[in-house]
Design a binder for these strands. Structure first.
Lengths: 157, 157
DNA sequence: AATTTAGTTCTTTTAGTTCTAAACTAAAAG
DNA sequence: CTTTTAGTTTAGAACTAAAAGAACTAAATT
């Protein structure tokens, strides 16, 4: 790992493993974390490879994945045949907006469970219903928080 | 898979893979999903094993994990040497209450990134700051939602 | 005391992921 | 036309996680 100071290396390690918990592979997590704290916004294939001390194929596959999922975008400059890569922050915002859907999925799973469970389980059914209600609260409140946030942004941006 | 009808099998499959996305292993996810829709609240080791068509060791390790994490509890009845297992719904509520911490982790990672990034990246830094602000909104609003929910429950429970 | 039961622990197998290294390819430069 | 550059693709090695199977153990039953 070259060109990266102590605190940036630490960031890549820590934020990388936070991303791994979210299901990204190690190399993908490290590419994202690296781009997040790199000293220029656009980094070439080779700069990524060298900074992360990874093989060409690992970087190539990681970049392909991130481009496919729109987490990064590629930039080409005339007179330079290299491609440069930078974060696509828009996509992160989209991911945040879709959190409500995730909670909806859990709420629907509990609904289905309550449907399949015996009505005799009065105590636990009541507890489950409460949890269901909390997910539903998230489902209704999160869009409110999001639009509050968007209003704030549009007035200042 | 015995003793389980079509819709319950479907539930185990679907809810199981929802849990796998959250980081649980397949067998652990299926044990939880099974207990969620089983025809009695307490199920023995053998009933779990047979219903899920899994090996003894897989079920033993899965149960150990779930007991250790408090997702299920074991019940013994005198005159019966088997142990019975049932969901520990309290723990699920605790997990829900800790969601705020998760968002706090992301917010702190972005804070660190902003600290390590050049101030020259004005446009992207402003976008990142907005995302940071959304996570912080979650951080402040989720506890409010949770206490609204708890008040509602205490008045009806 | 011997056997059965209920489960645990250890070992092995399987499946799949992640990475490297090397061969390859397409475009641009000389 | 040949060479260089910038990657991609392929092939394979190393590692990891999950599950199966078998051997083991401790308590209860006969």
């Amino acid at each position: 790992m070259k060109n990266l100071n102590e605190s940036k290396l630490k960031f890549i390690e820590e934020t990388g493993s936070l991303m791994e918990k979210k299901g990204f592979s190690p190399i993908v997590s490290r590419i994202l974390s690296f781009l997040l704290i790199a000293d220029t916004e656009e980094k070439s294939f080779y700069e990524i490879q060298e900074s992360l001390n990874a093989s060409k194929s690992a970087v190539s596959n990681g970049i392909s994945f991130l481009l496919d999922k729109n987490f990064i975008k590629a930039i080409t400059n005339s007179g330079d045949r290299k491609r440069y890569f930078r974060l696509n922050i828009e996509t992160w915002i989209e991911v945040l907006k879709s959190i409500t859907e995730e909670y909806k999925g859990y709420r629907m799973a509990i609904d289905k469970a309550l449907e399949l469970r015996s009505e005799k389980f009065t105590e636990s059914n009541s507890q489950l219903t409460k949890i269901r209600d909390l997910y539903q609260l998230f489902e209704t409140k999160l869009p409110v928080i999001l639009s509050e946030w968007e209003t704030k942004n549009s007035s200042q941006a």
